[in-house]
């Protein structure tokens, strides 16, 4: 028979134990706030400075010596094109490598060494990739200081991210699904193309976006391979101009990208250029957030049909 005195004692113990719950919840919230508030403060400060500067002309003007006339046309076009090349190169290579390692590679010491190296690659400072690319793409392959060189450099940079994300997405597929496919008599390739890739695409996409979000803000390797800081023309559009440009001529064009444009403006003494830099920064952050938003939406759409 339980005495009411016992009950009081039990309640006291629970109350004491729960104080720790409270304590850790508060600690957690505090830690979270450090990150969230810092980002918010930075972003709001940039927005307050930069947003009033944003008008249509800002997006359609080339950089200029006069801050009021300067715009980010060449920078945002450059960023979009470089990102395009990066994605086209990194996604197929990264996904193929990830699938190979998970589904095909024999489990031996060579595979182990490759695995360790891939995680190491993710930790190499980006400027090192810039130096490698300067020697390899710019000079050895003769791609020059072009959009192609920049895109491939950033592709190398985010390749480990995509490989790791691909492997993790594949490992998240239950073993039973995997075995179910083989038990039906499927080959490895049939299993990969009918099951593994469709079911892991949401996870792979997340990795791709994380990689792209990293690449879009990279400055050091792009400067290393020789991006221009002042550029007042656009890469040739396919079939435009006289004589008409080829379909892929733009990939060999010189270029600049958003972070370099920002960096250039912040190093100017005039305050008006600092405002330009803030406005460009706002656009860059917006581009990144838009990419993440798109990723969340597509992931939601893809996951809706996947239940184990």
């Amino acid at each position: 028979m339980l005495q009411s005195a016992d009950l009081d004692a039990i309640r006291a113990i629970i109350a004491r134990a729960k104080r720790w719950d409270m304590f850790f919840a508060l600690l957690g919230i505090l830690s979270l706030m450090v990150g969230v508030l810092t980002f918010t403060a930075l972003f709001v400060d940039m927005a307050i400075q930069g947003v009033p500067r944003l008008d249509f002309e800002f997006f359609t003007s080339f950089p200029s010596r006069r801050a009021a006339n300067a715009g980010i046309l060449s920078a945002w076009v450059g960023t979009v094109l470089v990102m395009l090349v990066t994605a086209l190169a990194a996604v197929p290579l990264g996904v193929a490598a990830g699938v190979y390692l998970e589904e095909y590679a024999p489990k031996n010491w060579i595979t182990d060494i490759i695995e360790i190296n891939i995680s190491n690659l993710a930790g190499i400072p980006s400027i090192v990739y810039g130096l490698l690319a300067l020697g390899l793409f710019v000079y050895y392959f003769g791609f020059g200081q072009s959009i192609l060189s920049a895109g491939l450099t950033l592709a190398l940079l985010i390749l480990p991210v995509i490989i790791v994300a691909t492997r993790e997405a594949i490992r998240a597929i239950p073993q039973s699904i995997h075995e179910g496919s083989y038990a039906c008599g499927a080959t490895t390739w049939q299993t990969v193309s009918d099951h593994i890739l469709p079911y892991s695409s949401a996870g792979i996409l997340t990795g791709v976006i994380i990689g792209m979000a990293r690449a879009i803000g990279e400055t050091a390797p792009i400067i290393t391979i020789g991006a221009l800081t002042f550029i007042a023309f656009l890469p040739p559009a396919p079939f435009a101009g006289d004589p008409p440009a080829g379909l892929f001529e733009w990939i060999f064009a010189p270029f600049t990208v958003m972070p370099i444009q920002m960096f250039n403006w912040t190093s100017r003494p005039e305050a008006a250029f600092t405002v330009n830099a803030a406005a460009a920064g706002f656009v860059l952050v917006f581009m990144t957030l838009a990419m993440n938003g798109l990723a969340i939406y597509v992931r939601y759409r893809l996951r809706k049909n996947i239940k184990w």
Binding site: P174, S176, S181, N305
Partner: peptide, 24 residues
């Protein structure tokens, strides 16, 4: 062919689940 301990339908339609053995 094999039936497993825990039901393991593919995350596909009912039709495609059955058709898969035939498609391969």
């Amino acid at each position: 062919s094999m039936v497993f301990q825990k039901p393991n339908p593919f995350p596909k339609s009912i039709y495609e689940n059955v058709a898969y053995s035939l498609r391969v």
